[in-house]
C-alpha cells in the first residue's frame, strides 16, 4: 500500500544558533497517524531540533517542508515555557486550542464552543473545568493541556517532555491518552521523552539526537535501540517492554 504523503519533512536540516549547526543534517518525514519519539540525553539538541521543525527557530541549513499551506500544528512546550502566573481556569486553557490564526483584521470573539467540554471529558478532567489551572496537580495540568491539543484541529502535535514532572503511573496514563488522541483524530505526534520504556511501547518511530557524538539516527524504536551509537551513549540495554503492571507500582 502506498504511504500517505508526509505532513512535515526535514530535508538535510541542520539546526543550531547564530549560523552554527549543533547536529548533523537530518532527513525525515512525518506522516499522519505516526507516533514519533525524539530521544537523547540532556543538552543533546532535541528542543532546538523541534523548534526549528516548527518554525520557531530558523534552520542553519536545509529546509522544513509542509505538505500543505493550511497544515495545522500544535505545540506543547516544556512546562517552564508556560506562564502559570496567569489566572486561568482549566476551560480557559483548553479554549486556547481553538484560537488559531488570529490576526488584527480577524480577531476572536464569542463564547466557549462545546468542543471545550468534550475535550475535557475526553481527557477525564471535565470535573476540573472550573478549577484554576495553576492549582492543579502536574498530571491534571497535562491532561488539560492534552485537551487543548484535542480541540486544536491539529494535524501534527509536538510535545516537549510533557511527562517530565510525572511519576511512572501518571506518565503511563499520559502516553495512553496521547495514543488515544492519535488513534481517534488521526493525529501525528512527535514527543520528546526520556522514558525509553514508554517510547518502546507507544512510539512507532524514534529519532536519536546527540550533539556530543554528532548523531542523528531515525527509524523504528527497536532498530534505534539496537544501534551501537545508542548503546554507547546510553551505556545500558534499553528497558524491557512496559506493561500495565509495570506502571502501577
Amino acid at each position: 500500500m502506498a504511504q500517505p504523503p508526509p505532513l512535515l519533512a526535514s530535508r538535510q536540516l541542520e539546526v543550531g544558533y547564530l549560523g552554527q549547526a549543533i547536529l548533523p543534517p537530518v532527513d525525515l518525514e512525518i506522516r499522519a497517524g505516526e507516533f514519533w519519539a525524539v530521544i537523547g540525553r540532556n543538552g543533546s539538541g532535541k528542543t532546538t531540533w523541534l523548534k526549528t521543525m516548527l518554525g520557531l527557530m530558523p534552520p542553519v541549513k536545509g529546509s522544513v517542508e509542509q505538505s500543505r499551506a493550511d497544515l495545522n500544528l500544535s505545540y506543547l512546550p516544556q512546562r517552564k515555557a508556560i506562564d502559570e502566573l496567569y489566572p486561568l481556569l482549566a476551560r480557559d486553557v483548553v479554549r486556547m486550542g481553538l484560537d488559531r490564526k488570529w490576526s488584527f483584521v480577524r480577531p476572536w470573539f464569542g463564547g466557549e464552543p462545546p468542543e471545550v467540554e468534550r475535550a475535557l471529558d475526553e481527557m477525564g478532567v471535565l470535573g476540573l473545568a472550573n478549577e484554576p489551572f495553576r492549582r492543579l496537580s502536574e498530571g491534571q495540568k497535562q491532561r488539560v493541556l492534552f485537551a487543548r491539543l484535542s480541540v486544536s484541529s491539529a494535524h501534527l502535535a509536538v510535545l516537549d517532555e510533557p511527562t517530565s514532572a510525572m511519576d511512572q503511573v501518571a506518565e503511563h496514563e499520559a502516553f495512553t491518552l496521547l495514543d488515544g488522541l492519535r488513534k481517534r483524530h488521526g493525529l501525528a505526534i512527535v514527543i520528546v521523552s526520556h522514558y525509553l520504556g514508554m517510547v518502546r511501547r507507544f512510539a512507532d518511530r524514534a529519532l536519536l539526537l546527540d550533539r556530543d557524538t554528532q548523531t542523528a539516527l531515525s527509524g523504528a524504536p527497536s532498530a534505534v535501540f539496537a544501534d551501537d551509537r545508542f548503546q554507547a551513549r546510553f551505556s545500558e540495554r534499553p528497558p524491557p517492554l512496559e506493561t500495565a503492571e509495570d506502571g502501577d507500582d
Binding site: L73, S74, Y75, I82, Y86, K101, W102
Partner: peptide, 12 residues
C-alpha cells in the same frame, strides 16, 4: 500565557 504555542498557532 504560552508564547511559543501561540506562534505555532500562527498568532502574530
Amino acid at each position: 500565557f504560552d508564547p511559543e504555542g501561540a506562534r505555532v498557532h500562527r498568532l502574530p
